[in-house]
Nucleic acid binder design. Sequence first.
DNA 1: AGAATAGTGTCTCTAAGACAGTATATA
DNA 2: TATATACTGTCTTAGAGACACTATTCT
Lengths: 233, 233
Amino acid sequence: MDTIYTYPHPYVCTDATVFTLKTQDTTSYRKLPKTKLAILLYRRVEEPFKGKWCLPGGFLNIDELPEEAIQRKLLEKANLSKCYLEQLYTFCAPDRDPRARIISITYLGLMSENEGLKMPPEQWFEITSTNGQLQFSNHQMNISELDFGFDHYHIINIALERLRSKLVYSNIVHHLMPEYFTLTQLQSVYETILDKKETAANFRRKTADLVQETELYTKDMGHRPAKLFTKRS
Amino acid sequence: MDTIYTYPHPYVCTDATVFTLKTQDTTSYRKLPKTKLAILLYRRVEEPFKGKWCLPGGFLNIDELPEEAIQRKLLEKANLSKCYLEQLYTFCAPDRDPRARIISITYLGLMSENEGLKMPPEQWFEITSTNGQLQFSNHQMNISELDFGFDHYHIINIALERLRSKLVYSNIVHHLMPEYFTLTQLQSVYETILDKKETAANFRRKTADLVQETELYTKDMGHRPAKLFTKRS
DNA sequence: AGAATAGTGTCTCTAAGACAGTATATA
DNA sequence: TATATACTGTCTTAGAGACACTATTCT
C-alpha cells in the first residue's frame, strides 16, 4: 500500500488540437466564399520552447479530468467557453519534454465558426497541406514544422488523420457546423478537410441521412437561395 | 521551472486487454472445431480488489514506455513474450482506484492461438456475449461483471468494441491468426468476434485482398483438404 | 438576358448478400 | 457410397461516381 506513494511517476498534462472553419472574405459578394480549416495555436512565453508555437494545454489538477483541464485552459488562454472534445491519443515518449517525464493526454477539439469568431482571430491558423507537409498561416505570418515546440506538430498530424477518417464514417462534422447550413457549405467542409472534390449530386445522396431539411432558406445572395439544413438526430 | 516539481500529479499505470482464440476440442475428429474468443485475466492477490479479476498491467517505471511496461508485466505475470499492442484509451476517472488518483493508459493486445498456448490455460477466459452483457469462462469457473476489480470490465467492453470495428476496416485480424490458415478458419474468427454468420462465397470475395494463397494444403482431416493462406503484405 | 449557384435524373460500375450448385478428401 | 467440408457461379440489390440537365434568384 505505501509502495505506491514512493513511486517516481510521470507528470500528466493534456493538450488539445482545436479545429474550426474560416470562410474567406471574397471581393465580390456574388462569389461563394472559400472555406478553410483552421487550428488554435499559441506562442509559448516560457522555457522550454519559448517563442515556439504550441497547442493549448497544461497540467492536470489532482482530481480533475483531462477534459475539464482542457476546458479550463481554453478559457484562460483563448476565452473559449465550449467546444466538442474527444480523446485522441496519449503521447508518452520519455524525451518529449526536456524538463521531466511528462505524458500528454491529447484531445481532438472541434467548434463551429460562429463560436470560434468570438476569440482573437490571430490565434487561428489556416491549415494547408502540400505533399503531406502542413503549413499554417494567419494574416500576419506563416509557420511550419520547425516553429513548433514539443511534439505538437506531430500531434496535429495525428489529429488531422483522425478528423479525416471520422469525417467519412461518423457524424462528427456537425461539431464544425453552425445550427443551420446549406448543403453547399457542408460539401465545402468535406472537400476542404479531405482535399477531394465531389459532384453536388453525389454528395447530396451520400449525406442525405446525416441532415434534416428545414423550411428555411438563405436570401440576398445574388443568386438562387439555398435550403437550410440542420443536424439529423 | 521549479513549479513543476512541486506539482501534485496522478500516478500512471498501464493495462492491457490481450485477446486470443481458442479452438474447442470436439468429440469427433471429423467435425470442425469451434473457435472462441478468449481474454487474459488474473486474480488480484492484494488490496484493493483482492480476489477480484483484473487485466494484466501495472505502474510505469520512470523513462519506460507504456508498451514496454506492459510487455514486462505480461512476461512476469503470464510468461508471455511477444504480442501485438496498440493504444486503446486512457482512463482517468478520479475514483477509478481507491488508493489514489491513478490514470491507466490501456492497450489492445492480440496474439495468435499458437503463442497463447504457451501459457497456463486457466488464465484464458472464453468470452460470450448475451444481450450486450459479457460472460467469461474457463474450464473451472464463470465470471461476470461483478467479479472484476477497478473499471476493468468497462475497459474490456471498450476494447471489444474497438476490436470489432477494426476487424472490418483494417487487416488487424492477422495478429490473431497463425502464419498459415484456411479461409474457413479465418471466417470463423470473423464470425466469432462479430457474432454474425456469412456465406463462404461472400466471405471469400470480401477478404480476397487480405490474404495470399500458398501451395500448401491441410491433410488428414477426414474430408477435402483446404488450401492454406497467409497474410498478404 | 446573363451570371451565379441550387438542385435533379439517369447511366455505369462495383461490391455485398442470397442461394444453388460442384469438388474432393476420408471412413 | 456416405459424410463432411472446400470451393464456385450467378442473380439481385444498394451505393458510389460520372455527367448532363433543369430551376431559381438577383442585377
